[in-house]
């Protein structure tokens, strides 16, 4: 597990985070154009993290579950898309994006329940989690999932236990086609951009790397053949920390605090200047 010196951000703290150790930002590359939807990553994730299998039903799709769950942090989304007579079957690995500017962490009221390491991993510390679900409203990707039994929230850890000892995340290790790759952000962006250039040359003029700036970029970057329409893959077009959460954690918080302090000061001043309604 990462040490104290690697803590870049800590949720709900009044003090600055102690992380001073510089580390390269790690990144997982998801190349949807070479994903075959084999789901090896789904099972690798469960097995490495010792998560129990889910009970599922056939929903008329190849997709394992409608959405991620507290026990299922890695879901391949399958979508049939047809335009101009050309059919495509889009498969995308859905998981925590590990935002540079994480909405979950911003929204979290429990000190230390969500931390961000200097290498970019956003990690939930369930022992500190109070189960309020604010992170779920703070996440623009709808990733954190509530566990009914433990009353805590869970998501992909980027296999922080593996990464911190120099291993790749379990899903990357299991991926047979190398559609998942792992390395520094610079290295992964280079691989991704090279692939995008190749896709441009092969007739996918809109191919792009999905690394949304609205959340400061993500530690999971995705190559999309239809880069102009991330929503085809179930990705938000321009994700940011939700406006409501930003208002609430920003101006409203300051206004509110000011108002409360002002109110108390106001009545104090009143008491000193005017005082009680004397009866005599």
């Amino acid at each position: 597990m990462p040490a104290t010196l690697e803590l870049l951000r800590i949720s709900a703290t009044t003090a600055p985070a102690p992380g001073v150790r510089t580390m390269p930002t790690i990144t997982k590359l998801v190349d949807t154009t070479t994903c075959i939807g084999c789901k090896a990553c789904e099972v690798a994730c469960q097995e490495w993290n010792d998560l129990p299998p889910e009970t599922t039903v056939q929903m008329g799709t190849y997709q394992t579950l409608p959405d991620m769950t507290a026990n299922f942090w890695n879901l391949i989304r399958f979508r049939e898309h047809e335009e101009n007579g050309a059919l495509s079957w889009l498969m995308r690995k859905d998981q925590c994006m590990h935002c540079a500017d994480p909405g979950c962490l911003a929204a979290c009221p429990a000190p230390g329940a969500i931390v961000q390491y200097t290498n970019g991993i956003v990690d939930f510390q369930q022992d500190q989690c109070i189960g309020c679900g604010y992170c779920m409203t703070g996440c623009p990707f709808d990733v954190p999932k509530f566990h009914v039994k433990t009353q805590r929230v869970y998501k992909c850890t980027m296999c922080v236990d593996r990464v911190s000892v120099g291993l790749q995340p379990a899903c990357v290790k299991a991926c047979p086609t190398s559609c998942l790759q792992f390395g520094t952000k610079d290295a992964m962006l280079e691989v991704a951009n090279k692939r995008v250039e190749q896709l441009h040359a092969n007739g996918f003029a809109q191919a792009a790397v999905y690394d949304p700036p609205g959340v400061g970029g993500t530690s999971v970057i995705t190559v999309l053949a239809h880069g102009d329409r991330p929503e085809l893959y179930g990705l938000p077009r321009d994700p940011t920390i939700p406006m409501a959460v930003r208002l609430w954690k920003g101006p409203l918080k300051w206004l509110g605090n000011l108002a409360m302090v002002g109110g108390i000061l106001g009545v104090l001043v009143h008491y000193v200047r005017v005082g009680r309604k004397d009866h005599d």
Partner: peptide
């Protein structure tokens, strides 16, 4: 092969990526 030989299919992907 992507369905039934996903591991061997990596070499198809290498050909696609490296040789176009």
């Amino acid at each position: 092969p992507a369905e039934n030989h996903p591991v061997g299919f990596r070499f198809v992907m290498e050909a696609k990526r490296n040789r176009n």
